[in-house]
C-alpha cells in the first residue's frame, strides 16, 4: 500500500508515513512540528511516479491526512476546541452558520472593493513620501527621571585609584649614603653605624650597609664589630694626611689604597 509505506523526509521526521502515524497516535511526536503540506507533496510526488492511480490508495491517504489535519488543528487551537465542544449540536450549527455568514459578507465586501478599484482605476493623484498615518505610540512603563539621574550619578563618579604601593620596592641610590657617611666622617673620626641608620626603613638600611662596604672597599673607612650582631663601629682612615691627592681624586686613591688596606686587614 503506497499510502502507508511511502517514505517521508521532513525537518522533524524521517521515515515511512506509517511510522509517523503511530508516533503521532502514541503522542511521541508533536503534530505541531510536522508540516503536513510537505507530507501531501511527498505523497503526490510518489503518485506522479506511478503510471496509474490507485484510487484506494488515494482514498486512504485522504482519510489519514484529513484526520491528521484535524488533530493538528485541535492541537493548535485547544481553547477553541473546548469552546466548540461545549456547544450543543444546535448551537454549533448556529455558530458555524454565523461564521460562514461573516466570511461571506467579507467576501462580498472584497468583491465590492474589487469593483471599486476597477471603477476608480483612472484616478491619479500625487503621493507624498510619508503617508498620513501617525506612527503608533509605543507605551512605556511609568518612568521616574529622578531615579535614573541618581543611577547615572553613581556611575559618573570616577573610581578610586588602586594603590600599587605594596608592589614597589624603591632602592635609594648607594651614592646617597656614600655622601652622607663621608660628610659624617668629615665631622667626626668615628661613628656607630646602627645609630646612624636607626629609624630608616629596612631597604634603606640595607643600601646604607652596601655604601659602608663600598667605603671600606675604597679604603676610606675601617670597620669594627665586637661580636656578631654587635654595633658596627666605623672609623675614618685619614687619607688626606697620607696623600694630598686623596682629597681631589678619592676614587683613584681608594683603588690604590685598597690594596694596602687589604694587606693591612689580612
Amino acid at each position: 500500500m503506497l499510502a502507508r509505506e511511502f517514505v517521508l523526509d521532513l525537518d522533524a521526521f524521517e521515515g515511512p508515513f506509517d511510522l509517523l502515524l503511530s508516533l503521532v497516535l502514541r503522542d511521541e511526536l508533536e503534530l505541531v512540528d510536522i508540516d503536513l503540506v510537505e507530507v501531501v507533496v511527498a505523497f503526490v510526488e510518489r503518485l506522479a511516479e506511478r503510471d496509474e492511480i490507485d484510487l484506494e490508495d488515494c482514498g486512504e491517504f485522504l482519510v489519514l491526512i484529513s484526520s491528521l489535519l484535524e488533530l493538528k488543528a485541535r492541537g493548535l487551537f485547544p481553547d477553541e476546541a473546548d469552546e466548540l465542544a461545549e456547544l450543543e449540536p444546535e448551537e454549533a450549527a448556529e455558530e458555524l452558520a454565523r461564521r460562514l455568514a461573516e466570511y461571506r459578507r467579507m467576501k462580498a465586501a472584497a468583491a465590492w472593493l474589487t469593483d471599486r478599484l476597477a471603477a476608480e482605476g483612472d484616478r491619479f493623484f500625487r503621493l507624498g513620501p510619508a503617508p498620513l498615518a501617525p506612527r503608533p505610540e509605543r507605551k512605556l512603563a511609568p518612568q521616574a527621571p529622578a531615579l535614573l539621574a541618581e543611577a547615572l550619578r553613581a556611575l559618573a563618579i570616577p573610581p578610586k585609584a588602586v594603590s600599587l604601593r605594596h608592589m614597589e620596592l624603591r632602592f635609594p641610590p648607594v651614592s646617597q649614603f656614600l655622601d652622607r657617611f663621608r660628610s659624617v666622617l668629615a665631622r667626626r673620626r668615628r661613628f656607630d653605624f646602627d645609630t646612624e641608620v636607626a629609624g630608616l626603613p629596612r631597604v634603606d638600611q640595607a643600601v646604607a650597609f652596601l655604601a659602608l662596604l663600598e667605603l671600606r672597599k675604597a679604603g676610606e673607612v675601617e670597620l669594627e664589630q665586637g661580636a656578631p650582631f654587635a654595633p658596627i663601629r666605623v672609623s675614618r682612615l685619614d687619607l688626606s694626611l697620607e696623600d694630598d691627592a686623596a682629597a681631589t681624586a678619592p676614587a683613584a686613591v681608594a683603588a690604590q689604597e685598597g690594596t694596602t688596606w687589604t694587606a693591612r686587614s689580612a
Binding site: A101, Y103, R105, A109, W112, L132, A133
Partner: peptide
C-alpha cells in the same frame, strides 16, 4: 490607512456599503 481610502476613492470608511446590505444572512 488614509492611503487605502484614497486608492479606493472613499471620502471616509463610512462610505463603505453597510455589511447588512452585502448579504451573508446567517
Amino acid at each position: 490607512t488614509p492611503l487605502f481610502e484614497r486608492i479606493f476613492g472613499l471620502g471616509s470608511l463610512a462610505e463603505l456599503p453597510r455589511l447588512d446590505d452585502l448579504g451573508g444572512d446567517a
